[in-house]
Simulated scan of single mutants.
Amino acid sequence: MATTSIHVTALDGLVNVNSLFTIAVFVGLSLTTPGQHSLENRTECDADISVAKKLLVFEVVSFSFFLFSSLVAQGLKLAINLINSKDADEAFRARVNVKVLRFGMLGSAVGSVIGCLFLMLSMVNVIEIRLGMLSCGSRSTMNAVVSMVVLVSCALLVYVSTAVYAFLH
């Protein structure tokens, strides 16, 4: 058993980030409509209905993982703040089972990472619908996709590395 308030703060941060990503999911959905022409102005560069379908699937799966992650984090916060607290004045210093807490936080972090990967895939579809298909060779599409994949991958690498380090120590 351990006593800590830093876990509640970390869980709050995770829920807040998941909320921002969830907003991005709905923004991605609102920016695309079937039959939309790309800004490339070549009909062969326009995305077909299968790209819009993949976008919808990736957005729903992404949302599901963010919701999973947030609900696990909120459940852990509930356990820390309400169930395990003996004194209402010490809600942030509840005695918790460290193994359960670490497992729950790891599950929540994994849900966020997988949600980010599906969000990135959906954003590739948004880019293809708006700027033109990658197979078309559009420079704008290629620059946008490569920039996003590199930056998001680096950020996820940092996040996963620090989460694993925290989990092991």
Rank of each mutant, 00 (worst) to 15 (best):
T4K: 11
T4E: 10
T4F: 04
S5D: 13
S5E: 12
I6C: 10
I6R: 12
I6Y: 09
I6G: 13
H7T: 04
V8T: 11
V8P: 00
T9H: 08
A10K: 10
A10H: 04
A10S: 15
L11H: 03
L11Y: 05
L11N: 04
D12N: 13
D12P: 02
D12T: 04
G13K: 03
G13F: 03
L14C: 09
L14V: 00
N18F: 02
S19Q: 00
L20C: 13
T22D: 01
I23M: 15
I23H: 09
V25I: 12
F26N: 00
V27C: 04
V27A: 10
G28P: 10
L29F: 02
S30K: 02
L31S: 00
L31Y: 02
L31D: 02
T32N: 09
T33E: 04
T33Q: 15
T33C: 07
T33N: 14
G35N: 08
G35L: 02
Q36D: 00
H37W: 06
S38V: 01
L39D: 15
L39T: 00
E40D: 14
N41A: 12
R42S: 12
R42L: 14
R42C: 13
T43E: 13
T43W: 05
D46A: 10
D46Q: 07
A47E: 05
A47P: 03
D48R: 03
I49R: 11
S50F: 03
V51A: 10
A52L: 07
A52W: 07
K54H: 11
K54T: 05
L55Y: 04
L56P: 08
L56Q: 08
L56E: 07
L56M: 12
